[in-house]
Design a protein around this nucleic acid. Sequence first.
DNA 1: ATTTTATGTCAGTGTTGTTGACTTTCCAAG
DNA 2: CTTGGAAAGTCAACAACACTGACATAAAAT
Lengths: 171, 171
Amino acid sequence: MNDTRATAAPGGQALLFLTDEQLRKGIEAMFFAYRGFTADPDRILEDKAYGRAHHRAIHFISRSPGTTVNNLLSILGVTKQSLNRVLRTLIEDGLVESRVGTRDKRERHLVLTEVGEALERELSDAQRTRMRAAYREAGPEAVQGFRAVLEAMMDPELRRHFNQLKEAQDG
Amino acid sequence: MNDTRATAAPGGQALLFLTDEQLRKGIEAMFFAYRGFTADPDRILEDKAYGRAHHRAIHFISRSPGTTVNNLLSILGVTKQSLNRVLRTLIEDGLVESRVGTRDKRERHLVLTEVGEALERELSDAQRTRMRAAYREAGPEAVQGFRAVLEAMMDPELRRHFNQLKEAQDG
DNA sequence: ATTTTATGTCAGTGTTGTTGACTTTCCAAG
DNA sequence: CTTGGAAAGTCAACAACACTGACATAAAAT
């Protein structure tokens, strides 16, 4: 069923014979899996007045407490106007605190409040539960492969961000 | 660096010790990778008057030529009004043909025209190129794991659709 | 003193999703 | 044959979330 073939090549490198069909299935897998990936947080946010954009902001503020608006912008890849709309509501609702920088007073450092952290936990618990179940079902070797392919799929700039986040608490 | 640990458990099953941090990194990998995944088609569509929704419709019509609107709806998971707006422009622009069903004349069977297939090729070529590069970089075992985790992450209904598409040309 | 950077804000626009209401077509059961 | 309901299409209104462009403020850098 899984006919991704590998053969030893002269250089000791494994060569992949990837048919268009196999690649197409990878593409569809990404599409369907991403729907599942966002389904649980979406359900939680649907009641509250927030959407996916709020979730992303909350996630990365939680991940890098005290991050600046500019840093968040380059991670999320949206315009400042778009991010600002989201941040404004989160600050107004008391989920995020915006602190003027000490060294550079132009910068705003973003941190989650208690309430913000509670929502972050609720959202990430749901997402982690699905991820954990998928990892268990697929097995440990699969997890390594999953991460390797995803990382290889990222744009270089995003990959840099991804690995910087990793270093913060993992490396 | 990749510290997803696996240990042989009594039942012969491998046990995974997944920390919240490891799961979180999987979540972030999905987020960043999906951005890369959609980046190339987005760039192509940006010039033309189409968006991601058009791409998705074109992809699945190409994948299952003659599919009905209802089938497409359950694959894409949007409302008929939303899909209809997209299909209407694609039909008006001569990329998609809508054929009245022969057995059931209420149904519309959707197929790509020559022009539609040309755009589909352009889009999927771009997406496959990235996927192929990622597969090559990650290696053949990683590809297996990638697909296994993604499939485990899908909602059951979407997983059914995914596997039905597979059977069509792979099983 | 001037320029650049970081941030915030206002106004307008586009894509993509939603609900709700309504019509047309047409299969199938009574 | 009539009627109920499913499939498809349409119209209107609306919301989330992205975009561009223009402009304001404060502070750092030159």
